[in-house]
Write a protein that binds this DNA or RNA. Structure first.
Lengths: 328, 328
DNA sequence: TCAAAAGTGTTATCCTTACACCCATGT
DNA sequence: ACATGGGTGTAAGGATAACACTTTTGA
């Protein structure tokens, strides 16, 4: 028995804090205190309705307190209530409902406060190696993931009860098989399919039997604690989608940048290669940026013109974003 | 003092349950028990993590228990935690966090169970008269809403602190002024602007002073209890958007229907008139439907071919929906 | 025979995609 | 001089928007 009554439900805010550094997208991983069991975790804080009027205010407050980071853009993703996915078997604590948030920030100049708390940015493709198509089609797909998923899907075209589509059809759609194109926005659907097939560690940890009779299964990407990899998948998917109709990239860019740097950032997030000329035309015709007049010789070759984001676009165009178009 | 410890936070699930009847979109309004103060409310139920594994299961359960209705499609909308918007001044109960859900259903043949509970479907444009552009531009806009909002926006082009855009710019974008087109998906943005300006009753009820010095302000649409009109606005916006890339309309249609009936339903939801020929071509070229062979003479005039939804499209096309295009 | 609603064919226009080529700098 | 990355023009193809017109029924 406790002195204070234990609340039945606790609201937790979990943040996927994104920054892009050196053409690689990163997310903030919480300090060691949250890393028991060797499983990294996203920054997490309980929501106290008495201290903070809204979720967003609460989130900004504890992110800054925990990491010294002032995040810019913040957006709610989804609220997860799956019991089996958060608590362990035999767990008796309060039921935790986690509200996932996406936050964007520029990479901080001095990471002092970050280091002090043990928090650090990590490449997000460590957690989703099959999502990075910038170079070539990721080898892990054909070498590991697809054979296992094909086996799981079997040869049945029959839909399962409660599901409109068969395993096979879902596999085709999520992973772009048999004529379907790869859709970089289906990050969550792909992760959920792997979870359902028992191929990600989180699924086995949550008590789901591996659907395949195997002595050992390969590790598909670095797992995260609780349902944090699912939240990260949601965050990546949302960011990849939002890029196309809202000027959110600029939250991740420095004040001034070259068009190539902008393209590299968009490519890093969307995980695919883009057509240079069309990208430039798109950006300039949408009037998203304006030249500062300066040039940069940082990369070698012909100096590049330096641009800045035109904040006024939000007032002019109804949906200013970067419609990436078909293929690079 | 209570025998049982009172939980600090309670999770409430609030459902916007949509059906289309007679070319009019409706939402389910809860029975009289929830209608004290004369303010209608959406169906609402607390989430009990011990009884239900996920939010969605919990939602389906109490919706059926309360109204006898079996909903088909269910989708989470947003989680609202705004204290000022849910509890009254002086309220001391548990803090309620409401998770909004969108649910689609066909209009039930026999409304017995509905009537028994006092729940009833009501036209959703009663709550948002300015969102129905099917006939003409709604008169309430030019006669009431825009003059008041213009006054609120004043003549300042200055952005407010913490806001990237000026009141005037936001007004222009949300309500399609000065060259900007009317975007039927901005339902929530428009409602929030009216709330901020103190022009909807909910704002005044929540303790927000009317921003305009007026003896009396006109009633803009029927208010709902708590933050339910905000949840409804979110639901309408989401549904209007989703229509364009997922075949969700068919959740609202009977098994068999004519193309005109389908068009009327899409128009009812999106609140705008569509071009007949292009709509038909779109639907048929997307292979969303197939003819049953039968014809219907229900409407007078030449008999219409009867169609049914082709469920297989979900397996074929990556994003089967109805891209409505520019204007009707 | 006429009104009402269903259904078809065709054209102009814009946007996307792709290709080919020229420019400016450092080594 | 040449490699490297920056920057521009223009044509082909497809999707969309808009038009006019024919067909089939009931009253």
């Amino acid at each position: 028995m406790h002195d204070k009554p234990q609340p039945l439900i606790e609201i937790g805010l979990t943040a996927a804090i994104v920054a892009v550094e050196g053409d690689e997208p990163h997310i903030l991983i919480a300090g060691d205190s949250a890393r028991q069991d060797g499983q990294p975790a996203l920054p997490y804080g309980p929501f106290d309705p008495l201290a903070h009027r809204t979720f967003e205010i609460g989130l900004r407050a504890w992110v800054e307190a925990q990491t010294g980071l002032r995040v810019g853009y913040v957006e709610q993703l989804y609220t997860f209530g799956d019991r089996g996915r958060h608590s362990r078997p035999g767990d008796t604590g309060p039921h935790v409902v986690s509200i996932g948030y996406l936050a964007l920030t520029r990479v901080p100049d001095k990471a002092d406060t970050l280091e002090a708390t043990g928090a650090a940015f990590e490449r997000w493709y460590r957690f989703f190696p099959w999502e990075d198509w910038r170079g070539a089609r990721p080898r892990i797909l054909d070498e590991t993931i697809l054979p296992l998923l094909e086996e799981w899907a079997g040869h049945s075209e029959q839909a399962e009860p409660g599901r409109p589509l068969s395993r096979r059809a879902r596999l085709r759609l999520c992973f772009g098989l048999g004529g379907s194109p790869w859709d970089e926005e289906k990050v969550l659907e792909r992760y959920e399919l792997l979870y359902e097939a028992g191929l990600v560690e989180e699924a086995r940890r949550d008590g789901r039997e591996a659907a395949l009779a195997r002595a050992s299964l390969p590790k598909l990407g670095q797992p995260l604690r609780f349902d944090h990899r699912r939240i990260l998948a949601t965050a990546i998917a949302r960011l990849r989608a939002k890029l196309k109709y809202r000027p959110v990239v600029f939250e991740l860019m420095p004040e001034e940048f070259t068009l190539t740097a902008l393209q590299r950032t968009v490519e890093a997030i969307s995980g695919r290669h883009l057509h240079k000329q069309n990208f430039r035309r798109l950006v300039e015709s949408a009037a998203l940026v304006e030249p500062t007049g300066a040039t940069s010789t940082a990369t070698g070759g012909r100096p590049a013109a330096v641009y800045r984001f035109r904040r006024e676009v939000s007032e002019e165009r109804p949906a200013p974003g970067l419609r990436l178009g078909g293929r690079g």
